[in-house]
Structures are given as structure tokens and as C-alpha cells.
């Protein structure tokens, strides 16, 4: 067993706290053994020289091909490169829009970062609009930057959306549960009635159904299933489906 993985493997599924340290003695006997393998530390783990520090409290998770991360609950969003979020346009200034994404700083969004936009052909974005976009620049030292196109210049569902519907905020943890493949919450929810939703990794969720009442029901269900067991959720959803609310 390799030493590096063994250190992590002992702790998989355990609660770790900020300040915990994983050290790897590179100068040790199995020098060449360690050097051949790489470790990817996901969110919650931070590299510091030859050590890995824990910087979020939560449960250590592991995925095949040496990927480790901390599964934590938080409400505050920290912009991360490549993640898709829902932003609210707060200002138009020259050739960039300022977008509130729920992070510590507003993100900038260039007017050219929309599908089909050129210098002459500006996209129709007003203050207060909702945009779905992804981060191209997001680090702790710089202003985050959003774009509404992918690397091929296509929108792929990004851009301004949500003429009506309802936007609300949930925890970042619930968003990840909603977006995980084969999410039970989504599977239960889609049985109730047709609706559309946009889920941003920053904890914002936008919902639209056929009527305002249905929209509100979906929104309330999503908000309440944060702290429910799957049985509680299923009984509640059954009640809603039968129309008792």
C-alpha cells in the first residue's frame, strides 16, 4: 500500500476540521514509490509545500483516481473557475456589466461574452436581469469574471433568462444534492407537475411552472427538503401530488 493514499484512506468518511494536516515524508524510505503518484485535492483541502491542510470542516470523500475532497455544508458562495452560477445584473458601465453572484465581490461580465454578440450588435441586457453564466476568472486576488458562452462561442443555455418565475436562495450543499446525477430530490419532484428550473452552484435556484401557485409549491418544496429525511420528503411529495395543499 502506498503511504500517501494510506494516510487519506484511514480518514475517508470521517469528520475533519480546519487545521488538520496530512504530511507525507518525501525523504522517507519509499522515496521513488511516492514520487510516481499524484494526488488531486479538491475543495476543502489546500496544498502547503509537502503537506495538505484541511481548510473546511466536513467529511473527507474520495473518488477513484486519487481525488479527495471535503464534503461540507455552507451557505456562502466562493466563486470558482468553471462553475455555472445565476447572477443578477446590477449595473451597466461601458462595455461590462456588473453581476451579483453572491460572492464577496461582484463579477464582471463583458457585453461581448454572449452568443452572437459583436461590437455593433449588443446583447439586450438590462439591470435586474438574471443571467446564467460560468466563471472564466475566479481567484482570491482578482475580480471574478463571468461569460455566457462556452469555448466554442455557443450559449448552451447560458445567457439572460427568466422573464417570470421565482428566484430564491438555498444552501450550496442543497444545490449540490440537486445537481448530483440521479438526484432523488429531483426525481421525486419531477413526478409532481411539469416545471422548469435553473440551478446555480452559488445557491440560487430559479423555478417556473405553469401557474404562480405551482411555482410557489415547487419553490417551497425545494426549500423545505433541505433538512428532511428521504421518507419525510416522499410522504410530503405524495401529499402534494394528491393535491391536498
Amino acid at each position: 500500500m502506498d503511504t500517501v493514499h494510506a494516510r487519506f484512506k484511514d480518514k475517508i468518511g470521517e469528520v475533519l476540521l480546519p487545521g488538520d494536516v496530512f504530511t507525507f515524508s518525501v525523504q522517507g524510505g519509499g522515496d521513488c514509490n511516492i514520487k510516481t503518484e499524484k494526488i488531486i485535492c479538491g475543495p476543502g483541502l489546500r496544498r502547503n509545500g509537502e503537506e495538505v491542510h484541511v481548510c473546511k470542516s466536513g467529511i473527507l470523500r474520495h473518488k477513484q483516481a486519487n481525488l479527495y475532497w471535503i464534503d461540507s455544508q455552507q451557505r456562502r458562495y466562493i466563486p470558482t473557475k468553471g462553475e455555472c452560477v445565476i447572477g443578477i445584473v446590477t449595473a451597466k458601465s461601458g462595455d461590462i456589466y456588473k453581476v451579483d453572484v453572491g460572492g464577496s465581490e461582484q463579477a464582471s461580465l463583458s457585453y461581448l461574452a454572449f452568443e452572437g454578440a459583436t461590437k455593433r450588435n449588443r446583447p439586450n441586457v438590462q439591470v435586474g436581469d438574471l443571467v446564467y453564466g460560468q466563471f472564466t476568472i475566479a481567484n482570491k486576488d482578482m475580480e471574478p469574471e463571468l461569460v455566457c458562452i462556452d469555448s466554442c462561442g455557443r450559449a448552451n443555455g447560458m445567457g439572460v433568462f427568466g422573464a417570470d418565475g421565482l428566484l430564491f436562495k438555498v444552501s450550496v450543499g442543497l444545490v449540490r444534492r440537486l445537481l448530483s446525477p440521479q438526484s432523488e430530490i429531483v426525481k421525486d419532484l419531477e413526478k409532481i407537475f411539469p416545471f422548469e428550473t435553473v440551478v446555480g452552484l452559488n445557491g440560487r435556484v430559479w423555478v417556473k411552472a405553469k401557474t404562480v401557485q405551482q411555482t410557489l409549491i415547487v419553490a417551497n418544496l425545494l426549500e423545505t427538503c433541505e433538512n428532511m429525511t428521504s421518507q419525510q420528503r416522499q410522504t410530503l411529495f405524495k401529499k402534494v401530488a394528491e393535491g391536498s395543499f
Binding site: C41, G42, P43, R61, L67, W69, T80, E83
Partner: peptide
Amino acid sequence: YIIEERSYVPCEDL
């Protein structure tokens, strides 16, 4: 030997 990945997307296949 240690690579950092800040996003949950590749971790949990969101």
C-alpha cells in the same frame, strides 16, 4: 505531486 482543484463539479460529477 499535489494538484489543487477548487470546484465541486468534477468531484461529484454534477
